[in-house]
Computed example of a mutant assay.
Amino acid sequence: MKELCSKILTATDVGVRFSFPTAAMREHFKLLEGSRSLDFQVRDKYSKVWTFRLYNSKNGGHPKPVLTKGWRDFVKRMGLKVGDKVIFVVHGNQNDQLGIQVKRSIKLLSNEHWADL
């Protein structure tokens, strides 16, 4: 298993769309020439498969990838909040199976720990 990217969620990530890290998009996703979106699937720790749409808007000529379709349903069903962490991981020999992990920060004895949701 290899971590593709991780991000601590912002208000925009939770309320509107997930701003996907550009470097991770370039590394793993190959958008077809002329295409600005790509649907892909991830599996959570419960083996539920989620389908997200990666939309690559161009803002001043620079790519600005976001997750649109399927993301808000995921947020709602998982009960995600601002400050939670989302981690995309790659499984498999050919790096073709994606997984998603979600964690929440909890403080124990003045130390921060990330607990699985």
Rank of each mutant, 00 (worst) to 15 (best):
C5D: 07
W50H: 10
N111L: 12
L38M: 12
V86E: 01
P65K: 03
V102Y: 02
K64H: 10
K69H: 14
R36I: 06
P65T: 06
T12W: 11
D73Y: 04
D73H: 04
H28L: 05
V89C: 03
A115W: 08
S110W: 10
L98E: 01
L80A: 04
G34Q: 09
E27F: 07
H28K: 13
I106A: 11
K2Y: 15
L31Y: 00
A23K: 05
R17E: 11
G15A: 15
L98P: 00
K103G: 00
N59F: 14
M25W: 01
D73P: 00
E3A: 15
V66S: 02
D44F: 03
Y55R: 12
F40W: 07
K30V: 04
V90K: 02
R104A: 03
V82W: 11
M78W: 04
E33C: 06
D116K: 11
H28C: 09
L67R: 00
K30Y: 07
L4I: 11
L9R: 02
K45M: 11
R53V: 02
W50C: 06
L4R: 02
K81Y: 08
R26N: 08
K64I: 13
H28G: 07
K2S: 15
K7T: 08
A115C: 13
S105D: 12
G61C: 12
Q97Y: 04
K81N: 09
I106H: 09
K76I: 15
S6D: 14
G92T: 04
V16I: 12
Q41W: 07
R72E: 01
F52C: 02
A11T: 13
V66K: 02
I87W: 03
T12V: 15
S105W: 06
L109P: 05
D96S: 05
R77M: 09
K81I: 09
N93W: 08
S57C: 10
I8N: 13
S57D: 10
N56G: 08
E27D: 05
N59I: 10
K81A: 10
V14Y: 08
S19C: 11
G83W: 04
V49N: 12
Y46D: 11
L31M: 06
T51S: 14
T12H: 08
S110Q: 12
L54Q: 00
E27I: 06
V16A: 09
A11L: 12
I100C: 02
T51D: 05
L4P: 01
G99W: 00
R26H: 09
R104M: 07
D84I: 03
Q94V: 15
F74R: 00
G99L: 00
M78H: 11
R43G: 06
